[in-house]
Nucleic acid binder design. Structure first.
Lengths: 367, 367
DNA sequence: CCCCGGCATGTAATCGTTTACATCGCACCG
DNA sequence: CGGTGCGATGTAAACGATTACATGCCGGGG
């Protein structure tokens, strides 16, 4: 592969001139620029990124650390990150699926010297601390961090408000025997969603039966398995709020197997508004979270820090969530319309999937 | 940030010794290793990746070029790539959403010197040529390339066979008025799926009415819009094969709006087996493609090339696809069972979504 | 006519590593 | 007791770029 020296020799100029052509062209005379460019093109030359970042101490790359890549949520996060990064002329170095803190530390270490900033999602407080420890004086934006964020930026989803709204909605429909399937202990999202949900009861001064908090782990299968516990409970609850859509889907399958109708016998709601939620029968009442926005905002905040722009500040941003009322909660049309009026983003569904006109955006799905 | 020189000074050894500790530890005495490691840990030192790759000419990173990141398909491809790369101790530099060949070339250029190999998916022949032109003597594996692959590796989905099977299946159900919604012109997947589908007719010596090939573009909205053309056609077709699930979903929505029942009035099938296909009502008969496998195999083939392992060969691998019979094609139970026996991977569905037990894998969806 | 300033270009130091080669000391053997 | 060989460590030359500084040229003003 041709180096700057080869091009310089071939073009009959010094390496400084070639370098300048690729950096501050203004300092080189027009004919020289043209000549060098032509020679470089012929030799298939392009500046070596590693050498460049060694001397400039800038890599034009951002690191991304995610706990996993599976599923729609992460897919959207990374899409948000990628598009924002591309817009800002940054490349993206991803690393995911860190089984433990050890692996995560290794990943952030091996990014040393290859990135100008880091977007990281730490599934638990332990790894969040590890990331922060390894990145002193280094631009970092955390996604969905635990409570205390140190000296780095952070973007959170408004899990609390979303769950609060969901609680209000179910109470507003007249439900009193309400259960919830919570997410894993220690998971920030899970805790916040539970906290927000319970707040709705407090607000309405309706007592909440603690035995109706069922432990799930965000997987579809855990939702499926929770059905048994739920149906054994007496009096049987009339509504269930699952802390994410996957568990809601698993639960609904199990309920059907048990011969129960949703929402007539038991109302079910979720959280996340994944694509399937919209197409299920009955369509799932849920809380929309904008994962794309999460990634996009993270990069927006990170880039000035990475560039060393003076005045760039770390802040803690909150991405809003919104209740999406569909049929699975047993809400009637009037209620749905009300909900839609309050929250412009919410799609409104009749009792039947066919009533919902599909998204007709410019999104492509080339395979 | 501490450099190797700082650590050497602090530990009272030469930089060579420090370097050796991080590379071939065997050449350094045990006490020295321990000492250097301790000092390095205290100073928060880790070798700078850029400097390292400059001298070794290896980056331990692979580049990934995708046309987009939206949707389940790409999400899975990238997950396959990421996991395989992590297994092989490679990092992943992604770049997607290249609107045109120009942007794509810029992306591959800027990866120069930062990666040891490239996995690229070129949406059309034009950009495939661009990628190959810019990567002479450089390890490349193309995903879903056009017909002719040069001197680089390639992984394709068996679109042809999947579509052929789908054609056989619909013909086997007794359908004769069959339409298809094809994907974009020039798109490799689209062409192959159409070719395979038509081959089924040829094989069965059933004539295919060319006016029943409708142009779609792989989006849900295009499927929705195709309904009109389809329903205008006389005699009205009894079955439609959409070249991907998104279009099938759009089509089904439109048919419902028109008051038609699927599959009784019109059978609909898709291609891809995205997650939603499984949960729709009726569940969608489709062809499963394993996007994860596509990414995984690409990296598996690329790594030896990137490592310069002698004997590493470029090959053209084909990832199999399989028919998944569900309710949307009007197949009865017997037929479904037959299909399942022939193809172990296929899920079997009764006439109702509830009959399908959800995947209960270890997959997590932490938010 | 000479000097000065500015523009175009060249020279060389530098970034943080790896690694071939040199050096050094020690144990072993003759 | 001296030479030899080897294991541990040091010295210094790369790697491919950027950029401060030096140089050289040319035109204009005193």
């Amino acid at each position: 592969m041709a180096t700057i020296r080869d091009v310089a020799r071939e073009a009959g100029v010094s390496i400084a001139t070639v370098s300048r052509v690729y950096n501050q062209t203004s300092l080189v005379s027009e004919p020289t620029v043209l000549h060098v460019r032509a020679v470089a093109a012929r030799m298939d030359y392009w500046p070596n990124g590693a050498a460049r970042s060694l001397i400039t101490n800038r890599t034009n790359a951002l690191g991304v650390l995610l706990p996993d890549l599976y599923g729609e949520f992460f897919s959207e996060v990374i899409r948000g990150i990628d598009l924002a990064a591309r817009r800002e002329k940054y490349q993206v170095l991803v690393s995911s699926s860190h089984s433990d803190t050890e692996a995560l530390v290794a990943a952030v270490r091996s990014m040393r010297g290859r990135i100008d900033g880091l977007v990281a999602m730490a599934p638990d407080a332990h790894s969040a601390a590890a990331i922060r420890g390894f990145t002193r004086n280094f631009p970092v934006v955390l996604l969905e961090p635990g409570l205390e964020v140190g000296e780095c930026g952070a973007i959170s989803l408004d899990n609390y408000s979303g769950a609060l709204e969901m609680g209000r909605h179910l109470l507003g429909l007249g439900h009193r025997g309400i259960a919830t399937i919570r997410g894993p202990l220690g998971n920030v999202d899970a805790e916040e969603r539970l906290r927000g949900f319970l707040a709705a009861f407090e607000e309405a001064e309706v007592p909440f039966n603690e035995s109706l908090v069922i432990q799930g782990d965000f997987t579809e299968s855990s939702g499926f398995l929770c059905a048994e516990l739920l149906l054994k409970h007496r009096p049987r609850p009339t509504a269930v709020f699952a802390a994410n859509d996957c568990m809601a889907i698993g639960l609904i399958s199990a309920l059907r197997d048990a011969g129960l109708r949703v929402p007539q016998d038991l109302a079910v709601t979720g959280f996340d508004d994944i694509a399937i939620a919209h197409y299920m029968s009955p369509p799932l009442t849920t809380v929309r979270v904008d994962a794309y926005e999460l990634g996009d905002r993270a990069v927006r905040q990170l880039v000035p820090l990475a560039r060393g722009t003076k005045g760039a500040q770390c802040t803690h941003e909150i991405v809003p969530t919104s209740l999406v009322v569909r049929a699975s909660c047993g809400s009637n049309q009037v209620r749905s319309a009300e909900a839609a009026r309050r929250r412009p983003g919410g799609r409104v569904m009749g009792g039947e999937a066919s009533a919902d006109i599909p998204d007709a955006g410019p999104r492509e799905m080339p395979s």
